[in-house]
């Protein structure tokens, strides 16, 4: 198991450098620089522009800028935002809980519904339920997030008025950010001051529902389809027939003998969804004005805030890599054949 982890860790290093190189070059390929964007339409004195660029170290050749960036990274220095002068790390840690809360809820929604739908579709193969689930999941998978989000807002927020349109909490509540997770903070605020903050938790939930559904739709579709096909494959295995021949109950055959093996590929797919979630969060947060890192990164790209874009994306990418790494290890635990591989 130790070598298994070590081998997987070895793969991470080139990935890490690849990400730094890509973000570094991509943001510099977009026309305009931070100073120009800051000044906007107003004309800018070339001398002042050059001086500002020099102050930010942006007048250096690209390879030196990259070298400085990497050496700063190794010293644990992620730089500061050009706009707010706050360190990228502190901005990230302030905003990340909002995204994490959204992504976790979306993932829980996607996993629970996806597994359930996939398992039932596989057991009732060829039934109306099966065709229905597969049709809906194909639709869900092909749905552009920004369109789907707007449709749900139109229907549930505007027409029916069931959920709020945007944000994380109604302004009427007095909730101090303690953990950064609005569900927890609102719950605690409501406990602390039940009179003034009555209904804060429910309000936080109502704010979260639509974005979580929107963000979870694609992962849900992927998980449902993967679970179904994986279940169908395993149901045909000889060892499932053995399990039936042992006189085990159908529930035991499905959950102990089939699902356990069918979950192995599904687990990888769920792990890969973390990347989809982070990508989707950018759009979802923009639509729902959700103050998380997705919106933060979009704004940073808009104003060519090089340090925020480079390091913000690096942190997000690292998170995705680490999750996939953890999934790899879980995979090893779920599948003894991999664990024992030399």
């Amino acid at each position: 198991m130790f070598f298994f982890i070590l081998r997987r860790l070895g793969v991470l290093i080139p990935t890490f450098f690849g990400i730094t190189l890509i973000t570094f070059s991509l943001i510099r390929m977009i026309p305009g620089d931070p100073i120009e964007v800051m000044m906007g339409e107003r004309s800018l004195d070339p001398a002042l522009h050059a001086a500002a660029m020099k102050r930010l170290g942006l007048d250096q050749p690209l390879y030196i800028q990259y070298f400085d960036y990497i050496s700063n990274l190794f010293q644990g220095n992620l730089g500061a935002s050009l706009k707010t002068q706050q360190s990228v790390w502190s901005e990230f840690t302030t905003l990340f809980p909002a995204t994490l809360e959204l992504a976790l809820c979306a993932l829980v929604f996607a996993t629970v519904c996806g597994l359930l739908a996939g398992v039932v579709a596989a057991i009732k193969r060829g039934s109306i339920f099966d065709h229905g689930v597969m049709g809906i999941s194909l639709t869900g998978f092909s749905m552009p997030i920004f369109w789907w989000g707007l449709i749900l807002i139109m229907l549930f927020s505007v027409q029916l008025g069931w959920t709020p349109v945007s944000g994380r909490l109604d302004l009427a509540f007095d909730v101090q950010p303690q953990t950064g997770f609005m569900l927890i903070d609102a719950w605690r605020a409501e406990m602390a001051d039940p009179e003034y903050n009555a209904g804060a938790f429910k309000d936080a939930v109502m704010h979260l529902i639509l974005p979580a559904i929107v963000l979870g739709t694609i992962p849900l579709a992927v998980i449902a389809r993967m679970t179904r096909s994986s279940m169908l494959e395993v149901l045909r295995e000889d060892y499932v027939r053995t399990a039936r021949a042992k006189g085990l109950s159908p529930a035991r055959v499905i959950f102990i003998h089939t699902l356990r093996n069918a979950l192995i590929p599904v687990l990888t797919v769920i792990g890969l969804q973390v990347g989809t979630l982070m990508g989707g969060a950018v759009l979802t947060e923009t639509i729902f004005s959700w103050p998380g890192i997705g919106k933060w990164l979009i704004d940073a790209i808009g104003r060519r805030d090089y340090p925020v874009v480079q390091n913000g994306i690096l942190i997000v990418a690292t998170l995705v890599i680490v999750t996939n790494f953890i999934v790899d290890i879980l995979y090893g635990i779920a599948n003894p054949r991999i664990r024992h591989a030399k």
Binding site: D238, T242, A245, G247, S249, R260, N261, N335
Partner: peptide, 25 residues
Amino acid sequence: ERRKIVGKDIAMIFQDPMTSLNPSY
């Protein structure tokens, strides 16, 4: 009722033992 008999009073072994055992247990 059948499950009380199958696996207990009637048992069965199969052609391919390598795939007849569950790899996860």
